[in-house]
Design a binder for these strands. Structure first.
Length: 656
RNA sequence: GCCCCGGUAGCUCAGUCGGAUAGAGCGACGGUUUCCUAAACCGUAGGUCGGAGGUUCGAAUCCUCUCCGGGGUACCA
């Protein structure tokens, strides 16, 4: 049991004799924010005092008198209005830490309640190369899967691939009209990707062209409104003026926005129209948008030729994506894409209709739900199904196959409305006791605060980014090694280190932000390889390994049989306490599915280790017992670091 | 129009269902290396937590109003 739970257990009976609702009070026992307030603090005397009509400090006195903590803590201190500060006894800390030394799991127990959890993550569109936008879902989902598994839960990681949508209509259309047979022969995936991009571009060009006049009209209309309001503003009296000014401001901001949109559209259109080759193609394929949809419909209807092409393309596309997963050490238990469910969709709609959950409206089959104005559409008026339909079928399949306790969807937070509707509709439909959770996350932004793109407006390929990270890491690794009196690594090892460091940097940058906020993707900062980065953590690991290289493996084995830690130096004690909190932290990660709890923990651990490393010589400790204790702390630190990083999906190296 | 999310140090971000003097990294400035990896460590400067009210022992956190930014909003995913 972790320390926090243990403390809560001790306070539980005492509190239940004083109040009816103990669990919110127990929540108020937490790690102290500042060492001067002890290791843990109990904050419930204040609200309890209010409840009982007693001075909080008196309540605190009573709590201390009643609770049995003699074996765990020094004498509790009451501070301020009624805070109870707890400081763990050194020998208790030591006795809690020791079992981790001889345990591969570092003494972390598995959860008493074993849950079955489906995690839906990554889920890219297989027709396009993966880009930076895919990284968050992939990395966050992978981390959650690892943490859940480590704590003993059964996880089904499902990559819900987009392998059946319009994108395949585009590829098929592209293949029929634009394929370069030689290029396809040589590198099919690259050629398919080119085809996708070309068709997509032409579709967007025609759609944009159709929209352009309306954009201009909208702009004129707004301009007119602004002019009118300005006029009114001039004539208005003081009272009216404020109101008019406000609406004028609003109109003006709308105007700039629309202007920006229009200009963006114009330059996008110009890219095609000024390119003789592309503009000729655009001319030759005026109805490409509709044609692509027709290709998609043909595929979905089971047209033999379309299916044959799809069957030819799909493995190639998946192989391409697989390469990136291998590189990032990402693995799934199943990869049932959208295509896996397509035969079940008609039945899903039928069930919704017969059960009265859905009805026809404006030609579409809709599920109307109380909390939303717009319905969830499960079949379009042209008869096609939507991702809502697939998602419903997926939920049913997962319930029937694994009967999970929870289903997590690691998906962009912009889709929160979709999931709100989906979960509500699914609950009405399947009546099963399952927890649905949309684990949303923010957008990856560029340095300009806009979604991360290249200068020409394209999304940035993930693979290039990884290459860049590894290349930069390699430079740093080589420079550093070169600077040593005697360089240690050959080229192969440098390359290996660069891969671990480079990939780690990218994953860590993502995981260390609170997942709900947008974050700025800055390769320079991420690859600065200092400060709060994966590199700093990997470095602290390598430093410990260096101690053991010098001390010899026997020293490590010996240290792992230690029973007593000496924690007289503040740096030793702080490190010991942090080591003991690993288990708490992992539980904490799962409360709101927030990997940054774990990165924060590891960063703090690395910082505390650095301080320890500075102030507490290990190999040259003045006494044998102290040396052994410090070796034991070092061993725990390195294995906690390695385990923690591994739960983030990040590797370590023995030296760097 | 309606709904959701955000605004914290020069920059990028943490901040636990309200808790003590609001933290970290980067950047700036100053210091530390005959000593286990200086990819490190120590110190200094830097804040009306967007604004105004309210709730209470106590608010960055909860409520109301408001300003600014982003996103979503009937047949794309």
């Amino acid at each position: 049991m972790n320390t926090l739970s243990l403390l809560r257990d001790r306070f539980g009976p005492v509190l239940s004799s004083l109040a009816d609702e103990v669990s919110p009070l127990l929540e108020m026992i937490r790690p102290s924010q500042d060492v001067k307030f002890g290791d843990y603090q109990v904050n419930c005397a204040m609200p309890l005092g209010k409840q009982l009509g007693l001075p909080p400090r008196e309540v605190a006195e009573r709590l201390i008198a009643a609770v049995d903590l003699a074996d765990v803590c020094e004498k509790p201190q009451i501070a301020g209005p009624g805070f109870i500060n707890l400081r763990l006894k050194d020998d208790w800390l030591s006795s809690r830490l020791a079992p981790g030394l001889s345990d591969a799991r570092l003494g972390i127990e598995t959860s008493p309640t074993r849950k079955v959890v489906v995690i839906d993550y990554s889920s890219p569109n297989v027709a396009k190369p993966m880009h930076v936008g895919h990284i968050r879902s992939t990395v966050i989902g992978d981390c959650l899967a690892r943490v859940l598994r480590f704590l003993g839960h059964q996880v089904i990681g499902d990559n819900h691939l987009g392998d059946w949508g319009t994108q395949f209509g585009m590829i098929i259309y592209g293949y029929k009209h634009f394929v370069d047979a030689d290029a396809y022969q040589q590198n099919p995936v690259m050629e398919l990707s080119r085809l996708y991009q070309r068709v997509n571009r032409l579709c967007e060009f025609h759609a944009g062209n159709a929209r352009f006049p309306e954009q201009n009209r909208k702009l004129d209309r707004l301009q007119q409104q602004v002019d009118d309001q300005s006029q009114i503003c001039l004539e208005a009296d003081a009272k009216q003026k404020k109101k008019v000014e406000k609406s004028l401001r609003k109109l003006q901001s709308q105007l700039t926005q629309v202007k920006k949109d229009r200009d963006a559209l114009r330059s996008q259109l110009a890219q095609v129209s000024t390119d003789p080759k592309l503009s000729k193609l655009a001319e030759e394929h005026p109805k490409i948008g509709e044609a692509v949809l027709e290709e998609t419909v043909r595929l979905h209807a089971g047209d033999e030729h379309s299916l044959a092409l799809w069957n030819e393309f799909l493995p190639k596309c998946r192989q391409e994506i697989q390469r990136i997963y291998e590189r990032l050490d990402i693995h799934f238990d199943v990869e049932y894409g959208e295509s896996f469910y397509h035969q079940q969709l008609a039945n899903v709609v039928k069930q919704f209709l017969t059960s009265g959950l859905a009805r026809e409206s404006e030609g579409a089959i809709c599920v109307f739900l109380e909390d939303w104005d717009a319905p969830m559409i499960i079949r379009k008026k042209d008869g096609a199904f939507l991702y809502a339909t697939t998602d419903l079928a997926t939920i049913r399949y997962r319930m029937e196959t694994w009967n999970p306790d929870a289903m997590l969807y690691v998906v962009d937070h912009r889709q929160s409305e979709h999931f709100g509707k989906l979960f509500t509709a699914a609950r009405k439909w399947i009546h099963e006791d399952v927890q649905f959770c949309h684990v949303g996350f923010g957008t990856v932004l560029g340095r300009d605060g806009r979604p991360y793109r290249t200068r020409s407006g394209d999304t940035v390929g993930l693979e290039n980014l990884l290459d860049e990270a590894v290349a930069k890491a390699h430079t740093v690794v080589a420079d550093n090694d070169q600077r040593k009196p005697e360089p240690e690594m050959d080229e192969e090892e440098r390359m290996q280190v660069a891969r671990v460091v480079g990939h780690g940097a990218i994953k860590y940058a993502d995981l260390s932000h609170n997942r709900t906020s947008d974050y700025e993707f800055d390769t320079d900062k991420m690859l600065a390889l200092e400060g709060n980065t994966a590199t700093y953590l990997q470095y602290s690991y390598a430093r410990v390994q260096s101690i053991f290289r010098r001390a010899g493996m026997d020293a490590r084995r010996e240290a792992q049989t230690s029973r007593v830690f000496e924690l007289s130096h503040p740096a030793e004690r702080a490190l010991a306490l942090q080591l003991l909190r690993f288990g708490e932290t992992l539980e904490e990660v799962l409360v709101d599915y927030r990997p940054n709890q774990l990165t924060d923990y590891l960063f703090k651990l690395a910082q505390l280790f650095s301080v320890f490393f500075e102030h507490c010589p290990v190999l040259k400790a003045e006494r044998d017992a102290l040396r052994e204790s410090r070796l034991a702390l070092s061993d725990l630190t390195s294995r906690t670091m390695k385990q923690g990083l591994s739960l983030l999906g990040i590797g370590v190296v023995e030296r760097m």
